[in-house]
Each structure stands twice: as C-alpha cells, then as structure tokens.
C-alpha cells in the first residue's frame, strides 16, 4: 500500500477510536461527547485546539439530534420549555463563539485550555448526582408559569406513574441558559450540565424532564456556534468527519451499556477520567502561558490528584456502606 495512504488511514482510525471512546464516556456520565472529545484530541493527538473544538461542536449536533428523536417519542421532552430557553442559549452561543474568535486570533489559547479544565472538573458533582430521579418538592407556581405555560406531564417508567409538573422562575433559567450558551460557543461543547442546572435547580423541573429537554436544546445551540466556527475556519473536514462517525458509534454503544450498568462505582471511575482530563487541560493552559513544566510533572500532577480523588471517594463509599 502507498505509504501516504497508510498514514492517512491510521490517522483516520485514531480519530474514529478517540471519537468512540468520547462517545461512550459522554453517554455514560451524561455529558455530551464534546466535553471528553476535545481534551482527548488535543492531549493525545496534538490537534490544534480550534480544530478540536470545531470537530466537537459537529459531533455534539450529531449526538443531540440522534438521541432527541427517541426522547421526543417518549414525550418526556418539554418542547415548549426547550424552545423558550433557546432564545437565551442561541444568543449566548453567538457571543461565546465571537469571544472564541477573538481569543484564537490573538493566540490566547491558555484561556480556552484553563476554562475547559475548570468546566470539566466542575461538571463532576452533577455527574455524580445523576441517576437520582426523585421528583422535586413542588413549589408554588409563579407568574411566568402561567404566562409561558410551563406545565406538563409524562409517564415515568421507574416510578410507574404519571407525573404532573410545572416550572417556575423562567427568568432565572433564561439567565443561566445565556451563560450555558456562552460556554457552548466558547469551548465548542453542548454545556448540558449547565442547561440541566437551569431547569432542575432554576425551574424546579423533574430531573428526567431537565435532562431530555437539555439534550433536545443542545443541537440548536451547537448549530448556532458551528456556523460561526465554520466561517472562521475552525472546522477541519477530515477531522470532523472522523469524530462525527466515532462519537455517534460511541454514543450508541454507551446507551446499550447504560441499560445494563446500574452500579455507581462505574460512574466514579469515569468521573476520575474526567478529573484527570480536566487537570491535564489546566496544566496545558499553564504551559501555554509560558510557564514551563518538566514533562514529567505534566502527567504526574494529574495522576496524583486523580488518585487522591479515587481514594477519597472509595473511603466515603465504604463509610456510607458501614453506617
């Protein structure tokens, strides 16, 4: 075989495999594929950060649209609430991607790396609390509940009952969604964790409604950002093609495994991968500022912190089980 062809094929395989891995982790911990994809591409394949975020936005659209179709059929997604909040996320995504374009044109890459790391690590608490599908304590409907018709109902397969719910504080959710949009445009991710926070904590919606509606919204937010990324040249067709295929395969495998995995410890393991990637990104950001670290420390520091995290969690789980 032609050596140029072989090297391109290996390149493609690596991209697809990283995509599959990101898709599996993403769907298992309930984050979009992009959050894991970008660190893997930049850290292990040395892909330029702008191309990595561009590819990540594209795969985010693919996974969101792919799984949203299933959730709409189940009638858990609240299309009204989703559409209403997209005003804020699309506006935020426009501003976020413009900030990204400023950052890239001024070579301030460390801002992207460091904020990416912080977003990864701060997504851990919401990742760990996922799977708790208790219903929120009902709060009194407010004015926005009536004006924007934020009520709905769905059949909960776990609780085996029809759940009636209503959302409150529409304005608060819009504010949080605006920031979710900025993060999405800035880092090329779906920022699902923030979206869920806006609906779950902000609007007091049931977790199931929040997660499926968030997933439904992510595609539109990502499409807004990706059109600006497209114009700015952050989308590298070969890379985006490989990651889109990989992440979709990974997300599909992930949802198949998810049905079987109920064990919490597996979620801890994946969370520690995310912590590791988060610290790696922050260190990469520090190196990008110009502070040189010996290569040795670049992997040692994240490994130590991740190990502490795993041990800490293990001890906590043990204590909980004994009492």
């Amino acid at each position: 075989m032609d050596p140029a062809l072989t090297s391109a094929l290996i390149e493609l395989l690596l991209i697809v495999i990283i995509g599959i891995f990101a898709g599996i982790i993403g769907s298992l911990v309930g984050l979009g594929g992009g959050v894991v994809l970008t660190p893997l591409l930049t850290l292990f394949l040395k892909v330029p950060i702008a191309y990595a975020t561009g590819a990540s936005l594209i795969s985010t659209i693919a996974t969101s649209s792919g799984s949203a179709s299933a959730y709409i059929k189940d009638k858990i997604t609240n299309v009204r609430i989703g559409m209403g909040l997209e005003i804020a996320t699309t506006l935020g995504a426009i501003i976020g991607s413009l900030i990204a374009s400023y950052i890239y044109s001024h070579s301030l890459f460390y801002i992207i790396y460091i904020s990416f790391g912080i977003i990864l690590i701060s997504s851990i608490p919401s990742t760990l609390s996922r799977g708790r599908y208790e219903l929120p304590l009902p709060k009194r409907p407010d004015k926005t509940t009536k004006i924007f018709r934020l009520n709905g109902k769905y059949f909960d397969p776990v609780l085996r009952q029809e759940v009636q719910y209503w959302g409150i504080r529409w304005w608060l959710a819009e504010i949080i969604m605006f920031f979710a949009g900025i993060i999405s445009g800035l880092l090329g991710i779906g920022s699902g964790a923030l979206k869920v926070l806006a609906m779950d904590w902000g609007m007091n919606l049931p977790m199931r409604v929040s997660t499926t509606t968030s997933n439904f919204m992510i595609g539109v937010t990502a499409a807004t950002g990706s059109s600006i990324y497209w114009y700015l040249g952050y989308i590298q067709p070969f890379l985006a093609a490989g990651t889109a295929i990989g992440v979709l395969i990974g997300a599909f495998i992930g949802t198949k495994i998810l049905i079987k995995i109920t064990n919490r410890t597996i979620r801890w393991i994946f969370s520690s991968i995310i912590i590791f990637l988060g610290i790696e990104m922050i260190i990469k950001g520090i190196v990008a500022i110009g502070i040189l670290l010996p290569l040795f420390y670049e992997y040692l520091i994240p490994s130590i912190i991740t190990a502490i995290f795993i041990i800490g969690v293990y001890i906590r789980v043990r204590i909980k089980n004994e009492t």
């Binding site: 390149e11 040249g233 590298q236």
Partner: peptide
Amino acid sequence: DKLSMINSTVNSS
C-alpha cells in the same frame, strides 16, 4: 496526506 494532516490548512474557511 495534506487533507488528513492534524494541522492541515484545509478547513471550512
């Protein structure tokens, strides 16, 4: 090989 390079100059712009 130019298309598939990690820092290829062939991009959406």
